[in-house]
């Protein structure tokens, strides 16, 4: 696999197989900022990244899954290329992605995803994560041992000092800062609990969604994109899949496998998000 490329011919129309629910709502000129083997990222003027992906497992509500884009050569989609987001379509000078009538990927947790989630499952998830998670990000928050990771130490101080989750936004290594993944995981846990209880989600330690919204401007585009979706109750496919797998797991082994899959996402992103999902502070919300 190499650089993704476009279908041949000017004016070519490609039809995605899945469209993230947030994409048709974005309009204006975007620009390609990065191009990897299975994904191209476009930056929207709001600072949100819209991803064109090859694999449906990499969907988010701001992604478009269009495998045909990655199959053929002739032209490549380079950083710097301009893309017009027009609601029902995305257009470059060489091709158009026609989003109309395509299946919409919501990125929401459903009752079906969480019906088997229990405190004991969360505990098993935590144990599995401690032993299999990727070091380098926020895994140290769960291990509760001395660490020479300055980011973890800082995160501990933020949490111990009673500061709200906003204090973690933009903190940490990685192209998506670990703190952003962690916060997304916390929000996902709240969403999962709310869905299970048929109520509105509550953000722990911070009653104000507005605080997190404001904090989004202090992180980079990748982090902002993740948090923007999480604040709208939408999460990446791999995280939803992880939660569903844990919910449906019949034992430790299946949970181990779910964690194994999730922590392979990014460098530490999968680990950091799950750390957020299982993390709790005594007396603040329940210990898994």
């Amino acid at each position: 696999m190499g650089q993704p490329i476009l279908e041949k011919g000017t004016g070519k129309t490609l039809r995605p197989i899945l469209v993230g629910a947030g994409v048709p709502g974005l309009t204006g000129w975007g620009q390609v900022v990065s191009s990897f083997a299975g994904a191209v990222n476009l930056r929207h003027p709001q600072g949100l990244l819209v991803s064109l992906v090859e694999d449906p497992r990499n969907m988010t509500s701001l992604s478009v899954c269009v495998p045909a884009l990655f199959r053929k050569q002739e032209r490549r989609l380079f950083p710097g290329k301009r893309v017009r987001l027009e609601g029902p379509s995305l257009a470059t000078e060489d091709f158009v992605l026609d989003l109309q009538g395509r299946p919409i990927w919501q990125g929401r947790i459903t009752g079906e995803d969480v019906k088997g989630l229990s405190p004991s499952k969360i505990l098993l998830l935590k144990q599995s994560l401690v032993s299999m998670g990727q070091d380098g990000g926020f895994l140290g928050l769960l291990r509760r041992e001395q660490t020479d990771n300055a980011f973890v130490s800082k995160a501990r101080r933020v949490l111990a000092g009673g500061q709200v989750l906003c204090g973690l936004v933009g903190l940490g290594p990685g192209s998506t800062p670990s703190g952003d993944d962690f916060v997304a995981g916390v929000l996902m846990r709240e969403e999962a609990k709310a869905v299970a209880a048929h109520r509105e989600p509550v953000i722990p330690w911070s009653a104000e969604k507005e605080g997190l919204r404001a904090a989004m401007d202090r992180t980079n585009d990748a982090g902002k994109t993740l948090l923007w979706q999480a604040l709208h109750g939408r999460f990446p496919s791999y995280l939803i899949e992880a939660v569903r797998s844990v919910s449906e797991a019949k034992g430790q082994q299946e949970i181990d496998e779910a964690v194994e899959r999730a922590v392979s996402h990014g460098a530490t992103s999968g680990t950091d998000a799950l750390v957020g999902f299982v993390f709790s502070r005594e007396g603040t919300f329940e210990e898994p």
Binding site: A150, K154, P173, P177, N220
Partner: peptide, 17 residues
């Protein structure tokens, strides 16, 4: 060695250490 994005909190931390 630290490789991180130049967010406000990351810069504050790098300054701190």
């Amino acid at each position: 060695a630290v490789v991180a994005m130049g967010t406000e909190v990351n810069l504050a931390l790098l300054r701190e250490i």
